[in-house]
């Protein structure tokens, strides 16, 4: 995950409390989404950014996951994400995100 984004997630978590934060991802690949999710839950696996060794344990969801889809307006979802849902490997992404939540999520 981008070093600057790591800083932003870290400072927002300090400000609002980890229990009040959900991180949403839009990465096109399961692996990339998983790495980003790992960074904000278990810490930066590349040990390059401010979240290296910091286990925030935040709740993480990808925008193609059913939990997110059901929580938002269907029409807006179709307009903003409908096309990408057709293109992405949704099953693979859901599996990867679930695994990250089960392993590292604290909330």
């Amino acid at each position: 995950m981008d070093l600057e984004n790591q800083n932003r997630v870290k400072s927002m978590t300090e400000k609002y409390g980890a229990e009040n934060i959900i991180v949403l991802f839009g990465a096109a690949e399961a692996e990339a989404a998983g790495l980003a999710a790992e960074t904000v839950t278990n810490g930066d696996p590349t040990f390059a950014g401010s979240l290296a060794g910091v286990q925030l344990g935040l709740r993480v969801y990808h925008v193609v996951e059913p939990e997110f889809k059901e929580a938002v307006d269907g029409e807006v979802y179709e307009e903003q994400i409908g096309m990408m849902e057709m293109v992405l490997d949704v099953d693979e992404i859901v599996e990867e995100m679930k695994s990250m939540r089960e392993q590292f999520c604290k909330y």
């Binding site: 096109a28 690949e29 692996e31 990339a32 790495l35 096309m83 990408m84 057709m86 293109v87």
Partner: peptide
């Protein structure tokens, strides 16, 4: 590197 196949993703879109 986990960034997928960029042209293919564009063609799919």
């Amino acid at each position: 590197a986990g960034a997928g196949d960029v042209p293919e993703a564009n063609y799919k879109m």
